[in-house]
């Protein structure tokens, strides 16, 4: 069922390519938008599914905010458990359990759609970078959302803030469309933002849209972002706990 939105998206893009092709001449294979052929677009959407499977954290920020509001966070303060590591391990366990099952339908869909991956498997180095970007995408997603959840220490109600964040990440992560299609000046700005690591970046690596010689640099930048969010998250937690006051039992 999760693939249905992609299906409509594929039809939309097919219609778009169809009309470009008929106005410019040529055929479907030669038509492209900013380096993306039709098959690339389909592959792109499928790959962002994988990236999102790693980086999406349903209920993380809202869960933290709720625990702060309800006072449940006390138990992490009196027990010798570190909240952030505890949540991180829970997430990893949850993702592993979930995708151990979900890998079957994923594999099936990818097998059925194998023709859309026009260039086949990328070389090993790229695959390695892809795997690295997925893992870092997961961590960035985690620490970014956890940091947002920590805002709950300062404001009690964060649900509308979360919604705004969700909108931004949906649009700017490339979940909706490949980020290269943005107008140039916007794309430059978006490229500096960390959202792209949540969906666009891993997919772009796999499809070879990022030149191989740039890969180490790009991954290093991603690692910097990751460190940044780990630090922000830690500081927010430490400050927040100092602000926090729990009452009652």
């Amino acid at each position: 069922m999760r693939f249905l939105p992609i299906v409509t998206q594929i039809f939309l893009w097919y219609a778009i390519f169809d009309s470009i092709e008929s106005t410019q001449g040529g055929n479907l294979e030669s038509t492209e938008i900013r380096g993306f052929h039709f098959t690339d677009i389909v592959a792109y959407y499928l790959l962002t599914m994988i990236a999102r499977a790693f980086s999406s954290m349903p209920g993380l920020a809202s869960g933290i905010a709720r625990e702060i509001r309800d006072g449940e966070i006390k138990r992490y303060l009196i027990q010798p458990i570190d909240l952030i590591s505890f949540l991180l391990l829970t997430r990893i366990a949850h993702k592993m359990a979930y995708y151990a099952i979900a890998i079957l339908p994923f594999a099936l869909v990818f097998f059925l759609c194998r023709d859309y991956f026009a260039s086949g498997w990328p070389p090993w180095s790229v695959l390695l970078a892809f795997a690295g970007s997925l893992v870092m995408g997961f961590l960035i997603g985690f620490f970014l959302e956890a940091a947002i959840g920590m805002i709950g220490f300062w404001f009690l109600e964060v649900s509308s803030l979360l919604f705004v964040y969700m909108l931004f990440s949906f649009f700017l992560s490339g979940h909706m469309f490949p980020l290269t299609m943005l107008p140039d000046n916007v794309a430059t700005v978006v490229n500096f933002l960390p959202f792209k690591y949540l969906a666009y970046f891993p997919a772009a690596i796999f499809l070879g849209k990022i030149p191989e010689e740039d890969l180490p640099m790009e991954l290093a930048i991603e690692a910097c972002w990751l460190t940044f969010f780990i630090i922000v998250c830690r500081i927010a937690y430490a400050r927040g706990v100092r602000r926090y006051s729990g009452f009652g039992g």
Binding site: L12, I16, S19, I20, E21, I33, R34, M181, L182
Partner: peptide
């Protein structure tokens, strides 16, 4: 953004 690249959705 889509309409920057195409003039219509679907040919004709």
């Amino acid at each position: 953004i889509i309409f920057q690249y195409t003039t219509s959705i679907g040919a004709d």
